[in-house]
Design a protein around this nucleic acid. Structure first.
Length: 242
DNA sequence: AACCAGGACGTGA
DNA sequence: TCACGTCATGGT
């Protein structure tokens, strides 16, 4: 283990270990076969997203800020229960009503305001794809949330950098690469450029979607705050930094 | 019973 | 610019 994994090796190894993740997880609005009793279908790739899928992904991206996805799932069902699943329903509802519905996702007062703010922008798009700067100008939408929306809701090639990504790369031994020396404020774009410059799939957004989903899967399974290295598929190639 | 989870933003130094 | 506090629920 003298040389750290290249990013393409890492991607291949994760894919081989965990299989395709098929993000973003979306709630089903139909009774199609293959969905569980709650209408949830993790791991099934929808080739073409409709408008309600896009909206749900964008909402999920806001709700999942520093929050476990299981709680986001509950909040999404809360919105559905409260008939707040459409943009115009969220627009019409009070912030208090929205907050109540999304309560399980935490930070519910902040997030309710962020959703109320975002829905106006979303409707103003009228189907157009937003730019990254437009998303960043909205209150409560930072680089990760913006990139999550662009990558998963709008299928655009923006790699998502989250705490999992940083932690995994750090532990694998990428610490010596330039981007970790930078200030935290400018680190996001540096890490993003580092990663995307080394990936070369012709279908960029698909590779970015899958890679990021695999990193999340790997972090949840083996590389959490408390690492479980015993059964880790990357154990032999990991420097276990920090 | 602390700690963690797919962040973003305001504040004071 | 940086370091830190705030926002909050639910699972382990």
């Amino acid at each position: 283990m003298d040389v750290p994994l290249s990013l393409t090796e890492l991607y291949a190894l994760l894919l081989e270990s965990y299989g395709k993740q098929g993000w973003w997880p979306v709630l089903s609005r139909s009774n199609e076969p293959g969905f569980d009793s709650r209408g949830y279908h993790p791991g099934i790739i929808k080739v073409s997203l409709d408008d309600s899928d896009r909206w749900e992904i964008a909402v999920g991206a806001i709700l999942t800020q520093n929050t476990a996805w299981t709680n986001v799932e509950k909040a999404l069902y809360g919105l559905s229960e409260g008939s707040l699943e459409t943009p115009r329903a969220v627009l019409a509802a009070s912030a208090e009503t929205v907050a109540l519905a999304i309560r399980p996702s935490g930070y519910y007062n902040q997030k309710a305001l962020r959703l109320k703010s975002f829905v106006q922008f979303y409707q103003s798009l009228k189907g157009r794809v937003p730019t990254r700067d437009e998303l960043l100008s909205l209150s409560g939408i930072g680089p990760e949330t913006a990139d999550s929306m662009l990558l998963y809701a709008w299928q655009r090639p923006f790699f998502v950098i989250d705490t999992y990504t940083i932690r995994i790369l750090k532990r694998l031994g990428y610490t010596n690469d330039c981007f970790f020396q930078k200030q935290p404020s400018k680190r996001y774009e540096d890490v993003q450029l580092y990663i995307t410059s080394k990936l070369n799939s012709p279908q960029k957004h698909m590779q970015y979607q899958e890679f990021h989903a695999l990193l999340v899967r790997h972090a949840k399974e083996h590389c959490g705050a408390k690492a479980r290295c015993e059964t880790c598929p990357l154990e032999a190639r990991c420097r276990k930094m920090l």
